[in-house]
Design a protein around this nucleic acid. Structure first.
Length: 604
DNA sequence: GTAGGGTTAG
């Protein structure tokens, strides 16, 4: 029923293919009940306030201060509802907007229902905000039903209404419906798409990794007479940077400036992030200086990018220096800054330092969130303190923070790596009992644990289960299965799965190739392993240190000493070196006079 | 007073 209603509603809103009479066909739906996440006492205050206080508040409300937290917003809302005469819908909409900006979407819906009870009629602005909230709550059906209210009140949905709906569909991966609205807008004479409409669609394409299509849309809007702005350009520049095609991003950046569009702090932050990820620190510094020389000053997010990249490079000391610098410039580190720092320590295994940062966050007030807990939990999992991690997990749940699929996946991986498969499986069930859907990565983690703990058949069961749930197994999942098959000695099955990858639209990556090469070596299929090494290069996938070490050990283990020595040479030429286990093997063979001592300098 | 762009975890 929704589908029929949707078609009629959007088309009729835009006066495409339907006459005015079609309005009568729109069925009205009430706003659905939304679970109230708040204490009733906050929403429905029982205490009455003295009129003097109300008067003073009324003066304050004329200037409506920007609320920065939910509690303040609700308080202001309650005060407003008690005023006589009631403030205008504009004032209430301001509060709804601020609550929406704090991402408390279901609260906005609840507050809007209360407005309805207070006989304050919504405006187009209010209704647009409500559609936006339903979009973010994954409730597009209800979002569309708001269109019915427009008709009932005699309002016309405007370009913002449609842009909001387009954004909602894109957020739910319903690209076709988003494009459908765009097409209807283009056909209509009443509500033409604007730069925001295109900007929204560009973002949708970028989110899907379709940078080429995003650029095509950029060109189309130019042709169609809608000038792209800084947001459209920055969206694509950022997406290119994330795709590590920073050169393309820089070209677009130049193009944008040549068209007279000035970059801002967001554009520069994306570019700096892009070059930092490639380890191009000099270029990052150049961009940083360039922006400052243009009078564009780095903000919290710019610094967070720098702090995070330094941490990921293992340079926590430098990251701390950066935090000092930002503080001196009057920019207070936030939960993201500290979380990055904490992760930096975790990556180095410096868990007590990580915990110190965590405690510092706690001491600064309530800025610890589920994300920061997950980072610390991951640190403990990776450093063999799964029990410590579980304590934190219980602590966060007890503190009202909701673990998500990432938190669960982290812990499941922690248990798997300890060989505690039963505990991992229990968590896998528990997360589903809590209403969380395991994603592709959760499945991959548990499948990997099962494969490495002699439970290949259970891993295959999970593989089937995820396909049944319409989760598309990615290359990581296939690599895990291929490895699992190899571990079980089923190298022929592994080969079949490997060769069938491209028909599934998947490209093996360096890990997949290395796994397959390892499997072939262990099965004594040395020629095939060497051929695969050649093939991967031909297919544009460069072997890394792990690939070389794997095949070299395989060759030695199959008594192909001279071929192994040749590959050691090649590995070193390519800038990689023997790892501990290869070196150990070479030394062992050396002691048995099975290899040439001339190899020694190469394995050091 | 409403819609599109940049930061942290598996």
């Amino acid at each position: 029923m929704m589908k029929v209603m949707r078609t009629i509603t959007i088309a009729s809103c835009l006066k495409v293919g339907y006459g005015v009479g079609s309005r009568q066909r729109v069925k009205l739906r009430g706003t659905p009940p939304v679970p109230c996440l708040l204490h009733n006492s906050t929403l429905f205050p029982s205490r009455s306030r003295p009129s003097e206080s109300i008067k003073s508040k009324n003066t304050q409300l004329q200037l409506l201060v920007k609320v920065t937290n939910l509690e303040d917003a609700l308080h202001v809302f309650d005060e407003m509802l008690q005023l006589r005469p009631l403030p205008s819908v504009v004032r209430f909409t301001q509060v709804l907007s601020q609550v929406a900006k704090l991402k408390h979407y279901s609260t906005v819906i609840v507050l809007n229902d209360r407005l309805g009870l207070s006989r304050i009629g919504p405006s187009v602005y209010t209704l647009n905000i409500i559609i936006n909230c339903f979009s973010h709550l994954n409730q597009m059906g209800f979002g569309l039903s708001v269109l019915g209210k427009f008709f009932k009140l005699g309002f016309e949905p405007d370009v913002t209404t449609f842009n909001t709906l387009i954004n909602g569909f894109l957020l739910q991966n319903r690209e076709a419906e988003a494009v459908g609205i765009l097409n209807k807008m283009m056909e209509s004479g009443t509500c033409k798409p604007n730069v925001v409409t295109f900007g929204t669609l560009v973002k949708g394409l970028c989110m899907k990794g379709n940078n080429a299509e995003a650029i095509q849309l950029l060109r189309k809007m130019e042709e169609g007479g809608c000038k792209p702005d800084i947001v459209v350009y920055s969206t694509i520049i950022d997406s290119l940077c994330k795709d590590t095609t920073v050169v393309d991003a820089m070209n677009l950046f130049s193009e944008m400036m040549s068209k007279g569009i000035d970059p801002n702090v967001i554009t520069y932050t994306s570019l700096i992030h892009g070059v930092c990820k490639l380890g191009e620190w000099k270029e990052a510094a150049r961009l940083f200086n360039e922006m400052v020389s243009k009078g564009i000053f780095p903000n919290l997010l710019t610094f967070n990018v720098l702090v995070d990249t330094l941490c990921k490079e293992g340079l926590v000391g430098k990251a701390k220096g950066m935090v000092k610098m930002m503080t001196e410039r009057g920019i207070e580190p936030d939960v993201v800054t500290y979380s990055s720092l904490m992760d930096g320590y975790c990556l180095r295994g410096e868990m007590s330092e990580a915990k110190e940062v965590f405690d510092l966050m706690l001491s600064k007030g309530s800025i610890v969130d589920a994300y920061s807990y997950s980072i610390l939990i991951n640190g403990y999992c990776k450093h063999r303190s799964i029990d410590e991690a579980m304590l934190l997990f219980k602590e966060m749940s007890g503190g009202g923070l909701v673990p998500d699929a990432v938190t669960y996946s982290t812990l499941i991986d922690g248990f798997c790596k300890q060989g505690r498969i039963r505990d991992a499986q229990k968590l896998f069930s528990k997360m589903q009992a809590c209403g969380l859907l395991p994603d592709v990565q959760t499945y991959a983690i548990l499948m990997d644990g099962l494969c490495k703990n002699q439970q290949l058949s259970k891993a295959i069961e999970l593989f089937e289960e995820m396909k049944g749930k319409k989760l598309d197994p990615n290359i990581v999942v296939y690599s895990i299965l291929i490895e699992g098959l190899c571990i079980r000695g089923k190298v022929e099955c592994a080969k079949d799965l490997f060769s069938g990858l491209s028909s599934k639209g998947l490209q093996p990556n360096v890990k997949t190739f290395t796994i397959m090469i390892s499997g072939l070596c262990n099965a004594g299929l040395i020629d095939e392993a060497e051929n695969l090494l050649i093939e991967m290069k031909e297919r544009g996938c460069s072997p890394n240190g792990c690939t070389y070490n794997t095949i070299i050990r395989g060759l030695f283990n199959n008594n192909e000493t001279s071929r192994a020595m040749g590959l050691i040479q090649q590995m070193v030429e390519n800038g990689f070196s023997a790892d501990a286990s290869t070196a150990e093997l070479v030394l062992e063979l050396l002691s048995k006079d099975k290899v040439d001592p001339a190899l020694l300098p190469l394995i050091e």
